[in-house]
Amino acid sequence: MKVIKTVNVEKIYTSFDVDTVALNKVNLEIEQGEFVSIMGPSGCGKSTLLNLISLMDLPTRGEVFFMEQSTSKMSDRKRAEFRRKYIGFVFQNFNLIEELSVYENIELPLVYLRMPPSERAQRVRAVMERLDVAHKQRFFPMQLSGGHQQRVAVARAIVASPLVLFADEPTGNLDSKHGQEVMEILSELNEAGTTVVMVTHSSANAEFANRIIQLFDGQIVTGKVNQYSF
């Protein structure tokens, strides 16, 4: 199944009457189970593309299909539902909620899924064990190192068993050792069947992927994609 498909997607930002084209007629397809790395120089539109395909934002023109469903006319509620059920997100700066403990941060997506407490507890425990953060479950984010925070962030991203995991510079704030650990976790997840789409500057990280998409000035320049407008 094509999990993600974009057709002539454009994203234009307007500020003080100046139009900035962040993405210019991008066509992209990602199959289920792929590990795709999106690379490119700063300002090329990587994060913009990530926002569109993760249903965080809407394109100015073009279509985004998720699980072969058109998302352009989807209501905000429907998009939130999709994010809840099918998407996990890992950020560069972790974005853990400071008022929640490790356990509660990981549990949060399941709370939004209205999962019964006992099932939630089971899943959270399993994920904490897998990411080796169970011993820190009562800690709060500011009490953790960067590496641990990112592990918790990954745990939160996968606890609901998402179809697709989006990672935006997941190792950007980590040292090489912890960064390596995170990449290995993403790789394991992918091997287990999760589709992973990662934005990265790092060629080393990009090598974990089985497809690399190069963006430049809002357009895909290389990669195993169909380029209709290249």
């Binding site: 539902e81 994010r83 059920k85 998407i87 609901a160």
Partner: peptide, 16 residues
């Protein structure tokens, strides 16, 4: 606001 954004990304809808 950042916490709100994260919650949205995780899947919280407006009503929640």
């Amino acid at each position: 606001a950042r916490e709100v954004v994260v919650r949205k990304m995780i899947g919280a809808d407006k009503e929640e």
